[in-house]
Amino acid sequence: MRAYLLARLGWAVPIVIAILIINFLIIHLVPGDPIQALVGDFPTPPGYAEQIRKEYGLDQPLLTQLWLYLVNLAGGNLGFSFANRQPVLPLILDRARFTLLLMLPALTCAAVLGVVLALAAAPRAGSLYDSSVTAISLIGFSVPIFWLGQILIIAFAIKLRWLPAQGMISLRETLTGWAAVADVLWHLVLPGFSVTIYYIAVVARVARASVLDALSQDFVLTAKAKGLSGRYVLWRHVLPNALIPVATVIGYNFGYSLTGAILVETVFAWPGIGNLFIASIGNRDYPVLQGIFLLTAVAVVLANVVTDMLYAVLDPRVRGSYGKNA
C-alpha cells in the first residue's frame, strides 16, 4: 500500500511542476511588458511596478526569472489584486468556499442519480429505457452548460416564478438560522442542476458499462445459482463492484466540474471563483486569472491523487497487484 501511495505522489510532483512552468510561461504571453501580467492593467502606485520588476527579476535571464517566480509561489505569494485591493491567494480561497458549496451537493446528487439510472438501465440492455439513458448521457455531453442555465432561468425563474434567478441569498430580507440555510438551498437548485447534468452523463455512462460488466461475471452466476433473488444480487453483489469505476470517474472529472461551475456561476451571479474569474477578465486583473488557473490545476491534481488512494481502498486488487510489480 505504501509503495502504491508513494508512486502516486511521485506522479503528482512532476505534473505540478509542469503546471507551475506553464503558468510562468503564460506571463510572457502578454504582448509588450510582462510586468502587465504580474500587476494587471491598473494605475499602480509609483515605484510598485519597479518593486515587482525587481522581485521577479524581469531584467534577468529567463531561468533566473523562473526560479524567482517559484520562490515567490513557495512563500504563498500569488501577487496582489489591485481591483480587489487584497492579495490574490486569500481572495481566491475566500471565493472557493462558495464554489465548493455549489459543486459538492451537485456532485453528490449526480453520483447518486447517475448510478440509479445505470442500475435501472443496465439489466435491460437494449430496451427503450436503456436507449433513453444513453440518449440522456449523450445530451449531457453536448449541451452548453451556460445555455442550460439560461434556459432554466427562463423556464423556472421568469415564466413559472418557482425559483430565484440570480445570486446566493435573498437580498430583500435578512434571514438567520435555518431560514438562511433554506434560502441558500433554494438559490442552489437551478445552478446546482446545471452543474449536475454533465456529471450525470459521465457517471451514467461509466456506471452502465461497469454494471453490465459486473453482471456478466462468474460470481453473479454463482449468486443466482444459490437461489438469491435478482434484486438481492443486483444490490449486494453487482453494485459494490460497479461502484469502483464510478468513484474514480467522479474524481478524475473534478476539473470538468470546476470548469462547469465557473461557467454556471457567471449565468447565475453565484459569488464563487467563476464570478471572480469573469470580473477579473473584465478588469484585466491578470494576477487573479493566473492564480485561479494555478489553484484549480493543483486542486485537480490533488483530486486525482485522492481518487487513486480511494481506488486502492475500494479495490484491494489494485494495491495488491502494485506490491507484486514494485
Binding site: I15, A18, I19, I22, I26, I27, L29, V30, A37, G255, Y256, L258, T259, I262, L263, F277, I281, R284, Y286, L289, Q290, I292, F293, T296, A297, V300, V301, N304
Partner: peptide, 17 residues
Amino acid sequence: VFQVVPGFIMAAVIIAL
C-alpha cells in the same frame, strides 16, 4: 499534464492575457 490541467480555464487565461 494536458489531460489533468483544466483546459477551459487555461484557454480562457491565455486568451484573456
